[in-house]
Amino acid sequence: MKEFRPAIIRMHERGKGVREIARDLGISPNTVSIAIKRFEETGSNESRKREKNTSRFPFNYAVWSILKEKACSKPHPTVESLKRALKKAWNEISLETFKIVDNFPKRLKACIDANGGHFG
């Protein structure tokens, strides 16, 4: 699927449907759907849609990194133990941390727009 992903995304952005893309590329509609879903969740390719909507991927990645660091520093004997540790870690994340993480995509864009120079 990896080798088809760029073509799937380009065709999707041009308005082609899942079945049409699958037929044109000779792959299953399920494969096309998975690639499109992953693209829409992560914004892993450049697209007009991504420019219009701020991707939530950096936020999700940062939060999961925090949870992993806090809750998974030691092995858990059961799934319930892991769930309790994740809930505890979630409750320990401050609102300020969420604000900082949520601002990251905007700050990154400002840095890119400033060509790595100073920005406000």
Results as ranks from 00 to 15, higher is better:
Lys106His: 12
Ala89Lys: 08
Ser44Glu: 12
Gly17Ala: 10
Ala22Ile: 12
Arg50Tyr: 01
Thr42Pro: 00
Ile93His: 04
Gly17Asn: 13
Phe4Trp: 12
Arg10Lys: 13
Thr97Asn: 06
Lys99Pro: 00
Glu40Ala: 02
Cys72Gln: 14
Ser81Val: 05
Pro6Phe: 05
Arg56Trp: 02
Glu13Phe: 03
Val63Met: 15
Glu20Gln: 15
Thr42Cys: 03
Trp64Cys: 11
Thr78Met: 06
Ser47Pro: 10
Lys88His: 10
Asn45Cys: 04
Lys99Val: 09
Leu108Pro: 00
Phe57Glu: 13
Gly120Asn: 09
Ser28Gly: 14
Val101Asn: 03
Arg23Phe: 08
Leu108Ile: 07
Asp24Gly: 00
Ile9Lys: 07
Lys2Ala: 13
Ile36Trp: 01
Pro75Arg: 14
Arg19Glu: 13
His118Gln: 11
Lys99Thr: 06
Lys99Leu: 14
Arg5Leu: 03
Leu95Ala: 12
Pro77Ile: 05
Glu13Ala: 14
Lys83Ser: 05
Ile100Glu: 14
Gly117Gln: 10
Gly26Thr: 08
Ser81Pro: 07
Leu67Pro: 02
Ser28Leu: 06
Phe4Ala: 06
Val18Ala: 01
Glu69Trp: 00
Asp24Phe: 02
Ile36Phe: 01
Ala62Gln: 11
Ala114Glu: 04
Pro6Gln: 09
Lys88Gly: 03
Arg10Gly: 00
Arg56Asp: 12
Phe39Arg: 01
Glu3Ile: 08
Thr31Asn: 07
Glu20Ser: 13
Asp102Trp: 12
Lys83His: 08
His76Met: 06
Glu3Gln: 13
Gly17His: 09
Ser44Val: 03
Glu41Asn: 09
Asn30His: 06
Val32Pro: 04
Cys111His: 11
Lys68Pro: 00
Glu46His: 10
Ser94Asn: 07
His118Leu: 05
Gly26Arg: 07
Lys87Pro: 00
Val79Ser: 09
Arg50Leu: 15
Lys52Val: 11
Pro6Asn: 08
Trp64Asp: 04
Ile21Met: 04
Glu51Tyr: 03
Ser94Cys: 03
Leu67His: 02
Glu40Arg: 12
Ile9Val: 15
Pro105Lys: 10
Ala85Phe: 07
Thr31Pro: 00
Ala22Met: 08
Glu46Ala: 14
Asp24Arg: 12
Gly43Ile: 09
Thr78Ala: 05
Glu51Lys: 15
Ala7Val: 01
Lys109Ala: 14
Tyr61Gln: 15
Lys52Trp: 05
Ile21Leu: 05
Phe98Ile: 06
Leu82Asp: 06
Arg107Trp: 08
Gly117Tyr: 02
Gly120Ser: 13
Arg38Ser: 11
Ile8Gly: 01
Thr42Glu: 12
Arg19Cys: 01
Phe59Val: 13
Ile66Lys: 12
Ala7Asn: 10
Val79Pro: 00
Lys106Trp: 03
Lys74Arg: 14
Ile8Pro: 03
Met11Glu: 07
Ala62Asp: 12
Glu41Val: 03
Leu86Val: 15
Thr97Gly: 00
